[in-house]
Computed example of a mutant assay.
Amino acid sequence: MGYDVHITRRQNWFDESGPKIDINEWRALVLSDPDMRLDGYASAVVGDGSILRVDSEGLAVWTAYAGTGVGGNMAWFDFRRGNVVVKNPHGAILEKMLQLAQKLDAKVQGDECEVHGAGGSVIG
């Protein structure tokens, strides 16, 4: 399964109401960042050699991530229902999420509603 961390403007990332990040705002931010690329899909080779592909109009990759290409590790940022979601982010990816959140006037919040601050530390 994994653990998702969200860039969100809502009180809690899963709230139905509250301010959302607009898909066009997300696209513009990704396109303005030379270290991000808007792909609209992600693909990976699975155990039997077949290719798994996920399509999402706001799916972007952080191309400057040091793990990119190493064992197929990519830092994917997926736009979902007014939030931007990353699965299992760690230090460097959390830092990139914080940078993007600041530009979006948003926060970085984990699945259990903990809020992340500088260095990925939990601040709330």
Rank of each mutant, 00 (worst) to 15 (best):
M1H: 15
G2H: 03
G2K: 08
D4L: 07
D4F: 01
V5R: 02
T8P: 09
T8Q: 03
R9D: 07
R10S: 06
R10D: 01
W13T: 03
W13N: 02
D15H: 11
E16R: 10
S17A: 14
G18H: 02
K20E: 12
K20W: 03
I21N: 02
I21K: 04
D22F: 03
D22L: 10
D22Y: 06
I23K: 11
N24R: 10
E25H: 15
E25G: 10
R27H: 10
V30I: 12
V30Q: 02
L31N: 14
P34C: 03
D35T: 10
D35N: 15
M36V: 00
D39Q: 09
D39H: 13
D39R: 11
Y41N: 09
Y41W: 12
A42S: 15
A42I: 08
A42H: 08
S43H: 14
A44I: 14
V45G: 07
G47W: 11
G47A: 13
G49S: 01
S50F: 10
I51T: 15
R53H: 02
V54S: 12
D55N: 11
S56C: 06
S56N: 15
E57W: 11
G58R: 04
L59M: 13
L59D: 09
L59F: 12
V61Y: 05
W62G: 04
A64T: 09
Y65W: 14
A66R: 08
T68W: 10
G69S: 11
V70C: 11
G71M: 07
G71S: 09
G72C: 01
N73A: 14
M74G: 07
M74K: 13
M74A: 15
A75K: 00
A75C: 09
A75Q: 06
W76K: 02
F77I: 06
F77H: 03
F77V: 00
D78T: 14
D78N: 14
D78S: 13
F79Y: 14
R80W: 00
R81A: 15
R81T: 14
R81W: 13
G82R: 00
G82Y: 05
N83Y: 04
V84L: 01
V86F: 03
V86S: 06
K87C: 15
N88R: 08
P89I: 05
P89R: 01
H90V: 13
H90Q: 12
H90S: 15
I93N: 05
E95G: 04
K96A: 04
M97T: 00
L98E: 02
L98S: 08
Q99T: 01
A101G: 02
Q102I: 01
Q102H: 12
D105C: 09
G110F: 04
G110P: 04
E112P: 03
E114P: 05
V115F: 00
G117Y: 02
A118E: 11
A118K: 10
G119C: 03
S121G: 14
I123Y: 00
G124S: 12
